[in-house]
Write a protein that binds this DNA or RNA. Structure first.
Length: 1144
RNA sequence: CGGGAUGUAGCUCAGCUGGUUAGAGCGCCACACUGAUAAUGUGGAGGUCGGAGGUUCAAGUCCUCCCAUCCCGACCA
């Protein structure tokens, strides 16, 4: 059996073949079975939603998941990988709505909920086969046979259990959330409904700057210094109707405010007001600052004087009098100044009036500060009773029937052309004003001396797409999880999680936790996990159901009590965990809504018609996928928390958060110990991929063309995966050409010669110490590499690992080791040296295959199998069944690695010199000179002398010990050492050193110390605090790099010239052989035109030429021999012909 | 508006705890090397390390502010 040799590298083809192999041999299954009794490494798969096709970004996150799972498997862990599907939620619903051509409000009318949900259930899985195909093609090993699916009855039962647990702990409660609400339609609108085109339209509002009178008490006393009038805080609003429900004022913590003595513009009464310094010019003209402090309403200039300045922080806590004291909030300590992080000085007064019921920010800041709310407006958009003359009025004119009627009339008039556009708009405004309660409110404020300014203001505002009326922000009933109650714990537990990158954990996620609000769990949709909460009509009795068994028990009670006719799930057998049994129960809507339970006091209870947030579904997967606690209690304990998860950064507030929140609240634990959050995949220009732009990369096409390995490798190595990836197929091509191409060539080289020599790794390992230095060097690097890959992957840094492997393969193995050791593989005896070379190269290739297996599973498999099939050295039939290599520290020889670096460095310097001298490498030269200032250099260079000499084609190296007069020395400070010692003198000393003469330097070297007088201070330096290097050797071709200096002797003697010519001839003959398509081992006869140029060379180097070209004979001929292939070649600027005849 | 990330050569990226000529690959130009190579070597062009301050003997690296791009979230009182 021979090592497979390849004509070309075809990664997509290898992909297919390896895939086939894995399938036929059940390799994934085997990799699991092999480790079954080992310690588990727990991985959680974040469930994708299969209602859309996967994109290239999914390849990114799945590569990360896969590679660490493979890595840990190879390290001996048992890594179960259960796939999952996220099946509920809005995207599916919207898709179904679109497909059926209906909207949310037509569900239950045009189509039954039952049928609608059937569509959802079907459609959500419509792309599963595409997803599975991607999973397989990209080599993502995950168990697709038994996935968890969030809509399945068992899964939902676990969710119910969790909800009841939370309820029992007082963490589930009903409250309010401020949501866009359409009073005309009587329904809340989702954010996506607000994003429908045309929803934002300009509306005209009456705005007012209201004056809130400060209460004089201990807290506010400091404000009243120098104040001889009432003191007011100014706040601007575009919705004066919310002023009746005001319960607080918000200032910015760092915003600066001024206290200004002035007059009420409407009443003329002297007042003192507070507003943001930045906004003062909006209200006060410069001339007012100088004007006499006298004012009558209607005067052009309002006089003003600044009395003081305060930050928002100083103002917080100050109390004020309620503006409209119709009603008081039931709870909380209202009418205070608080700090709001959303306050700005862009417009208004830099102070925001807070009506918690009608603004999300307002509600949040009120809750944080323990301030209650007033909701003096009904769901219809009408003031409630008990607010004086405003009771019963709509808060916006558009809601009034009269408004509709009258505007319609005007519109018709305009349509008939009876009025022009200007008249039309004017009339419309008039109607709006007539019905506008806000104007009345402003007027009332004006009369009461509580208004500072009023204006009409046009701005864009969301409208309800169904009724065309402006929306209202309104408190809507909702169920919450009291996450804020466990906030500190969540923050503490987060500190123990290893985030990659760390900034996402501390910053993005950490900050989010700090500013967390309670989790609004409820959704008013159809396709999702129903909230298992039943409530009596009066809302006083609540039952939360935590299992199907409990549900059925309660249903039976209800049937007994007569509130339900029969049990719809009577076939379900509690306690029977079989699939068949669970198929008998479905608690999705509408079925669950038909269940009416009975309260302990005998009242009927209806379900709260909410679904829960789909994020709860996925955040619950650690236990819900096991149907915990109903089944798998033991297993869950072993498989919680996860050792590792990975998803995109966009999941920070999604899956990462819900996993963390639920784990903290339910189990007081983290849900995952290590997490990698990858960045986005952008196109080659750094723009987001979108169908609209047409810059989307199709993962199937890409993998089909380049193979999954190349895509995976590229994604992991081009930049750290947590950075955004600019996905460029050119980069993928480069990866193939450079990394995979070089590796392939190295393998092919090995295979070619190993087959010729019949190497099968049959011999015993040649002991490490008996291997040539070169072999020990590459083995040292190899083991260093193993260590580095280990370290990087343990840190969850695949980029570093991949780059290290890549560097090793390209630079060290191929371009240095193989290149310089080629001769050992071809020709010659099959002796220990050769065997050592084969064994070493084999080991390197095999190890590289193992190291790269997690990242590039296909090609790694191919190389490994190609090698192992012949040698049978390992029993593992797949590279993925092997143990990940361990570094053999005894083979790491940093000294040797350093020496080789010197060789590479000096070779490169000499090559550079040759280039300057315009002397080809093929022309041998006599010697190089290396001045040795420190004896270590001689030692180092000597160790690798032969390598250097053969690499640069020079006969010998000479060390110059007595450098006096031969070289020019330069002395440099060791900044690190001296900087600390000298401090400020550093600069001067550096200067002084630069000015030292050659004699001074020699003297310094001889004496070992040197003193300077600088600014009257004496500084003594020792030799180890400076670095002495040679810079030049007059009369020689010299190159200096760091502490190495090399000079090249460029004299070409006749002898050297002949040798050069001989080498040229060898090259020409070899090229000709290649052209003639001869086999590597074919013997030949060679004839060369008899010219003076080559005569000497052939005389003295005939054996060398014959040896190199496998020529039986080498003859000079005066005329070509008929019938033998002939070629004109150029040697040293002369043209001559050569002929080759193959021998049989 | 808030939180986060990023900004180094035309492009993609390195640059560890601050230490003195700021690196690599790709691309471009030129020359060379090669019986494994789709490679490789050498040279060239290309950088005020996003900007401005500051700390320090010394800043790409630490601090402050600003700008640009991107992500997430909120929202306009």
């Amino acid at each position: 059996m021979k090592f497979a040799e390849y004509k070309q590298l075809n990664l997509p083809e290898i992909n297919k073949e390896v895939l086939k192999y894995w399938k036929e041999n059940n390799t994934f299954r085997k990799s699991l079975n092999l480790r079954e009794n080992n310690e588990p490494f727990v991985f959680y798969e974040g469930p994708p939603s299969a209602n859309g096709r996967p994109g290239i970004h999914h390849v990114l996150s799945r590569t990360i998941k896969d590679l660490f799972c493979r890595y840990k498997t190879m390290q001996g862990y048992y890594v179960e990988r259960k796939a999952g599907w996220d099946t509920h939620g809005l995207p599916v619903e919207l898709q179904v709505e679109k497909k059926l051509g209906i909207n949310k409000y037509e569900i239950g009318e045009k189509i039954s909920v039952e049928e609608y949900n059937r569509h959802c259930k079907h459609d959500v899985m419509q792309y599963t086969d595409v997803w599975e195909e991607l999973t397989e093609l990209m080599g993502y090993w995950v168990d697709l046979d038994d996935p968890y699916i969030t809509y399945e009855p068992k899964y939902i039962e676990s969710l119910w259990w969790a909800l009841k647990e939370l309820y029992k702990r007082g963490l589930l409660y009903k409250g309010y959330t401020i949501q866009p609400f359409s009073p005309a339609a009587g329904t809340a609108l989702s954010s996506h409904e607000l994003n429908l085109p045309g929803c934002y339209r300009d509306i005209k509002d009456v705005t007012g700057v209201a004056m809130f009178k400060v209460k004089r008490d201990d807290r506010s006393e400091f404000l009243f210094r120098d104040v001889d009038t009432d003191l007011y805080i100014l706040a601007w609003t575009t919705t004066p109707w919310t002023l009746l429900s005001n319960t607080a004022l918000a200032v910015g913590e760092k915003i600066v405010y001024q206290k200004i003595r002035t007059f009420n513009p409407y009443t003329g009464e002297p007042v003192t007001v507070i507003l943001a310094t930045d906004l003062v010019p909006d209200y006060f003209k410069p001339e007012g600052a100088e004007a006499e402090m006298k004012y009558n309403p209607g005067d052009k200039v309002l006089p003003w004087r600044v009395l003081g300045e305060y930050t928002g922080k100083e103002l917080s806590g100050v109390r004020y009098e309620q503006l409209f004291p119709y009603k008081q909030p039931d709870e909380g300590d209202a009418f205070r100044v608080v700090i709001g992080d959303f306050v700005s000085t862009d417009e208004g007064t830099g102070i925001v009036h807070i009506a918690p019921s009608f603004g999300a920010d307002d509600m949040r800041v009120a809750k944080q500060n323990g301030i209650g709310a007033l909701t003096l407006v009904s769901e219809r958009g009408k003031f409630v009773d008990g607010v004086g003359e405003f009771s019963g009025r709509f808060v916006r004119p558009e809601y009034e029937q009269g408004y509709d009627r009258e505007t319609k009339e005007i519109e018709e008039k305009y349509a008939r052309g009876e009025i022009n556009q200007r008249q039309y708009e004017k009339e419309k405004d008039k109607i709006a004003d007539k019905y506008n309660v806000n104007i009345d409110i402003v007027v009332k404020l004006k009369k009461e001396g509580k208004l500072f300014k009023s204006e009409k203001y046009t701005h864009s505002y969301p409208h309800c797409w169904r009724t065309d009326k402006p929306i209202l922000y309104y408190p809507i009933e909702a169920w919450f999880i009291r996450t804020t109650d466990r906030k500190e714990r969540m923050i503490a537990l987060n500190q123990t999680i290893n985030w990659q990158p760390p900034s996402t954990g501390q910053g993005r996620f950490g900050e989010w936790l700090k500013n967390m609000v309670d989790w609004n769990l409820s959704r008013t949709r159809y396709w999702g996990t129903p909230l298992p909460v039943w409530v009596t009509d009066d809302g006083k009795e609540v039952k939360v159901i935590g299992s199907y068994q409990e549900l059925i028990r309660e249903i039976e009670k209800a049937v007994e009590a007569g509130v339900m006719k029969e049990n719809p799930f009577k076939d379900f057998v509690p306690g029977d965990m079989s699939k068949e049994n669970y198929e008998k129960i479905d608690v999705h809507r509408p079925y669950v809504d038909r269940i009416v339970l009975v309260s302990d006091s005998g009242k009927p209870m209806k379900r709260e018609e909410f679904l829960i947030d789909v994020w709860f579904d996925s955040g619950a997967m650690p236990f819900a996928q096991q149907h915990y606690p109903f089944e798998n209690q033991e297993k869950f304990k072993r498989y919680f928390p996860a050792d590792f998860i990975a998803e995109g950064v966009d999941q920070t507030r999604g899956w990462f958060y819900t996993l963390h929140a639920l784990a903290t609240m339910l189990f007081d634990s983290v849900a995952y110990k290590n997490v990698v959050s990858n960045g986005l995949v952008l196109d080659a220009n750094g723009e987001k991929m979108s169908k609209r732009k047409g810059n989307v990369v199709d993962p199937f096409e890409a993998m089909d063309k380049y193979g999954a390995d190349a895509i995976r490798w590229y994604m992991m190595t081009v930049s750290p995966p947590w950075e955004n990836l600019k996905f460029d197929l050119k980069g993928v091509e480069e990866v193939i050409r450079k990394f995979f191409g070089t590796l392939y060539n190295t393998y092919n080289f090995f295979a070619l010669y190993a087959n010729i020599d019949g190497f099968k790794y049959a011999e015993k390992d040649i002991p490490y110490q008996q291997r040539p230095e070169f072999d020990r060097w590459i083995l040292s690097l190899l083991n260093s590499l193993i260590k580095e890959v280990h370290d990087s992957l343990d840190r969850y840094d695949p980029t570093h690992a991949g780059r290290a492997i890549q560097k090793f393969v390209i630079d060290d193995l191929s371009n240095w080791y193989v290149r310089l050791n080629r001769k050992r593989f071809w020709g010659g005896e099959y002796d220990n040296d050769k065997i050592s070379a084969y064994q070493t190269l084999y080991t390197a290739l095999e190890t590289v295959a193992m190291l790269m297996a997690p990242l590039a599973p296909f090609y790694a498999e191919r190389i490994y199998q190609d090698l192992n099939k012949v040698t049978g050295r390992r029993s593992g039939e797949s590279v993925h069944l092997l143990d990940f290599p361990h570094a053999d520290e005894s083979m790491i020889d940093k000294d040797l690695e350093g020496k080789m670096e010197v060789a590479q460095r000096i070779s490169s310097m000499v090559l550079s010199l040759r280039r300057q001298a315009k002397i080809k490498v093929r022309q041998p030269l006599a010697k190089i000179l290396i001045p040795v200032i420190d004896s270590k250099i001689e030692e180092q260079v000597n160790a690798v002398k032969d390598i250097i000499l053969s690499e640069v084609n020079v006969k010998e190296v000479e060390f110059i010990k007595d450098t006096t007069g031969v070289v020019v020395k330069k002395i440099k400070p060791d900044y690190k050492k001296l900087g600390r010692k000298l401090g400020k003198l550093m600069k001067n000393v550096a200067q002084a050193l630069a000015q030292m003469s050659q004699e001074d330097i020699n003297k310094f070297e001889a004496e070992g110390k040197w003193t300077f007088d600088i600014d009257g201070q004496t500084v003594e330096l020792s030799l180890d605090e400076v670095e002495i290097i040679t810079e030049d050797m007059p009369g020689w071709m010299v190159k200096t790099e760091g502490k190495y200096t090399v000079a090249l002797d460029v004299t070409i003697t006749d002898e050297l010239r002949n040798e050069g010519i001989a080498r040229e001839l060898v090259n020409r003959i070899q090229n000709f052989r290649k052209e003639l398509d001869l086999n590597l081992t074919d013997r030949i006869l060679v004839f060369v035109e008899n010219k003076p140029l080559v005569r000497g060379a052939i005389e003295s180097h005939a054996d060398y030429i014959k040896n190199q070209t496998l020529a039986r004979s080498l003859e000079l001929v005066d005329s070509p021999i008929d019938g033998y292939p002939k070629k004109d070649v150029e040697v040293y600027d002369e043209t001559l012909y050569i002929q080759i005849q193959k021998l049989n």
